[in-house]
Design a protein around this nucleic acid. Structure first.
Lengths: 133, 133
DNA sequence: ACAAAATGATACTAATGTGGTATCATTTAA
DNA sequence: TTAAATGATACCACATTAGTATCATTTTGT
């Protein structure tokens, strides 16, 4: 059971590195060298971060990526959603049929509670807090 | 992100049904008819439940399954472990390398906390509590 | 003893998700 | 106008999950 997938993980590390170079435009090559992430995969990840407005990209010679201005408001869960889609702890438990012995399945409620807790926790971690010493 | 897989889900429903027929030996055919779970898959699931000592099986004509005597002590997490193995929310995040900007990665701690919470919650739900009206 | 009805064991197949690659198009600075 | 960067997109490989198929074993009734 994985809460965080590899692309999310890589994204986080890349962001940390970009944040370290405050203000500077950082290219794929630089990140690749530092973090040893396979280049094509890294490119894909950065492109997604750009689309999701977590990074800003600059094309052409001297191009690369910087943090978005609103970076301090972005949380771990935003990052996870970018790569892992909407986070439902369990999507379809008892969707088709209910346990015949219960009218309101108590397990569903429990799962919902757990889900909400997890989302709250993940949503409380800003990427900035991970970057700042 | 799935916390509970299909076999765990099916297992839970099957157990609910068996519990309803208190004491009676319930065959695969009966469960299949009631819950519309594909028979070979259901058989596999029930065999696992037997091996994990959550159900008792009886072979031969009139055979089938009943709940184990210690049923009241079995929790949702036991069921999940039977099908999904040991439950680690995240196994290897930052295993190979740490985010270069942090010495003790705060995210790792957060994940650990979430994991412990989830395990505690799931371990607090007895299957019996789901079955009992 | 034996046949039928049940589960046990095991190996295989199909579908999906994750991790990763390859290639061409587009933009931009020198 | 060319080289260096990212954008878009399609593809491939592997692992996990979901499900099937088949034969072996046990048990009960006749």
């Amino acid at each position: 059971m994985k809460l965080i997938t590899r692309d999310t993980d890589y994204a986080l590390r890349a962001i940390c590195f970009i944040a370290k170079n405050k203000g500077k435009i950082v290219s794929v090559s630089e990140i690749e060298q530092e973090l040893k992430i396979p280049r094509p995969f890294l490119r894909k990840i950065l492109q997604i971060l750009n689309k999701k407005k977590i990074l800003i990209s600059y094309k052409g010679i001297g191009g690369g990526f910087t943090l978005v201005d609103s970076f301090k408001g972005i949380t771990l869960i935003d990052l996870m959603r970018a790569f892992q889609g909407p986070l439902h702890i369990n999507e379809c438990l008892f969707k088709k049929a209910k346990c015949p012995n219960t009218k309101k399945c108590p397990i569903r409620k429990k799962i919902k509670n757990i889900e909400q807790y997890v989302l709250k926790e993940l949503g409380s971690v800003t990427l900035y807090s991970l970057v700042a010493k």
